[in-house]
Design a binder for these strands. Structure first.
Lengths: 131, 131
DNA sequence: CAAAAAGCTAACGTTCACGTAAAGGAAGGT
DNA sequence: ACCTTCCTTTACGTGAACGTTAGCTTTTTG
């Protein structure tokens, strides 16, 4: 019936506190079963937590991450109007594409700075392995 | 001597409130001249505000944006140790690259959902112009 | 010239995403 | 028996990034 995780298992794996995990539960992003009082997390929760972390790295709020996760969630779809749903998907895509260009612009500027910096240090550019 | 902007000019252009602009000033991200009491912003502030907005779209905090802007700022560089500086640049690059893969993963998932959605609607894929 | 619009400072309020402390239950080890 | 570890709930605390209100000055416009 798939792997099970305690709250500290997840906390360790994703490098967050148990508080954080409970918080996401409070916000209905995770829905662990209970064994007595204890929370037992399944594979679905594990996947969701991965999505949550990715969302956070992308700077989305918990609420936005909710929305994103619901986009992957079949149940949410069939009960909602598809056109509105498509609209949401496209808005998300738009935002993400904006982020892509933001990132590549920033990266190229950083590359430039890195180059200047290396020149000043008289180093040769070994863009690759670091010890 | 370059274009000048009032606080509402900038607010309108960047779609933020004047409060926000003043807030960035308080945080030393902008440094307008004063004409009496009034803040007068120059081209440098305009550029910085652009960088700030980009940083925000990337989910950076004001403090991190400070750091990023300082990376472009020559004055800050010459007085600091170059190696530490390079280290910072590389950390930023690392984070941004992570974001890039996060985004492309998310985008491809959204594309998939979009496809499914279109199929359900019986539409043909006109990926391009929308009215 | 009077009213509206734009600007200012100062200070308190708000939301998000947790942190942190208090008080306690249940399992396992020695 | 006692301690340690893991887990629980409840609840107040916190920093960031502004929002909002109040009270006052300056500039623009009909």
């Amino acid at each position: 019936m798939g792997p099970m995780y305690s709250i500290t298992d997840l906390a360790r794996e994703f490098k967050v506190t148990t508080r954080t995990i409970r918080y996401y539960g409070d916000k209905n992003l995770l829905s662990p079963k209970r064994e007595g009082q204890r929370r037992i997390y399944g594979p679905r929760d594990h996947v969701r937590l991965r999505l949550i972390m990715r969302g956070k790295r992308l700077g989305f709020s918990i609420e936005e991450i909710q929305g994103l996760i619901n986009l992957y969630d079949v149940d949410a779809t069939e009960s909602s109007q598809l056109n509105k749903f498509l609209e949401m998907i496209r808005q998300r895509q738009q935002a993400l594409r904006q982020q892509q260009t933001d990132i590549s612009e920033t990266l190229s500027e950083l590359d430039k700075r890195e180059g200047e910096c290396m020149a000043l240090l008289g180093n040769t550019i070994d863009s690759g392995r670091r010890k």
